[in-house]
Design a protein around this nucleic acid. Structure first.
Lengths: 185, 185
DNA sequence: AGACTAAAATAACATATGTTATCAGACGGG
DNA sequence: CCCGTCTGATAACATATGTTATTTTAGTCT
């Protein structure tokens, strides 16, 4: 047969993801990636047709990373949507570049915001059901309104126009949740 | 004396602004701008030290454009903040590239979101005063909450995750306004 | 009209990027 | 142990960008 490859796909993809995370997806260039992976640019083009395809894989990985982040985020609140919202805002603050790629780049060849949020676990669906069980009249509408607020918070966190602590953020979300549910009674 | 300049600053700045509006500020390159202005790249560097300085001017112009847009937006609603919010969301939907430059690029060497909103006319201050006069308990807090929602709507409009008509948007904003004010009583 | 001078076009330089060609060599199989 | 083959490094090509040097050109003033 032929020679064994010393540069593996995971070496490249790991490096590409790290580069995106640290410097933004615009900075994932062939040469920078090669330097990060400790090889020349050749293995990249053996593994991927072109840089766009590679970025597509990085995007998928970012989506999985986000899902895992939400999964791992502490579920302390009994109200539906709040924990997911807290995870989302926290993610935007801590992982600006990943958040940008997933939710602000218009890179939606892959998934819509709703699909990303819902993930493989059907998170949003589960939360909507929880809200319904709690007696919320129109849980889908509540989710939409809450999510717009949460997305706004996250985007402002990214640009530095929102700098509350986690505790303050949580209190704010709860107050918003209550205002919405009261108004929908 | 010497020769008169045939390429004026306004020719360059107009072209740069148009280019930013049509293709995004990342696309305002020396050569593309020269082509748009119908000259070579030389006059650009006579008028500006470098491309960054030029983009700074484009940014200022965009801020003025946004202020004028808000000024011209129909003031039909008697509730404070709503007209400004409608203008903001409408602006995000119609002028994606300008909105990106002003509110999503982290290009805040110039002005914060609040300064941009408040403009020269003190728009936000005026609206806060109006809300106070209407008996709102804590108009600053109300503004903050409403604005997070409005910014979220605008950002989602940009990425295609928010596609309500103007009328639907207005109804939504009013319902949010009422939910917040009720909750703050 | 002619000379001077600044403007503007052209061309060049330096760098960055995607992508491909060339080629030495390392590895698997006989 | 050698052969073939595929890997991966180097180098190259093509393009894009900011910026600067050089040259041409066109006003302006005398």
């Amino acid at each position: 047969m032929s020679r064994k490859a010393s540069v593996t796909e995971s070496m490249i993809l790991d490096s590409a993801f790290a580069l995106m995370q640290e410097e933004g997806f615009e900075q994932v260039t062939a040469r920078k990636l090669a330097a990060k992976a400790g090889c020349s640019t050749q293995p990249i083009f053996r593994l991927y047709e072109n840089m766009d395809q590679l970025i597509g894989k990085v995007y998928s990985r970012a989506a999985a990373y986000f899902a895992a982040f939400c999964e791992a985020y502490p579920q302390k609140e009994s109200l539906p949507f709040i924990d997911l919202g807290m995870a989302y805002i926290s993610f935007a603050a801590k992982e600006k570049n990943i958040f940008r790629l997933l939710f602000m780049s218009g890179h939606q060849g892959e998934k819509s915001m709703y699909e990303l949020l819902n993930g493989e676990k059907g998170t949003v669906g589960r939360e909507v059901a929880r809200a319904g069980a709690k007696g919320v009249r129109n849980p889908g509408e509540l989710f939409m309104k809450l999510w717009i607020f949460i997305h706004g918070s996250a985007c402002m966190a990214l640009t530095g126009d929102f700098d509350l602590t986690e505790a303050e953020t949580e209190a704010l979300l709860i107050s918003i949740y209550q205002a919405y549910t009261e108004a929908m009674k």
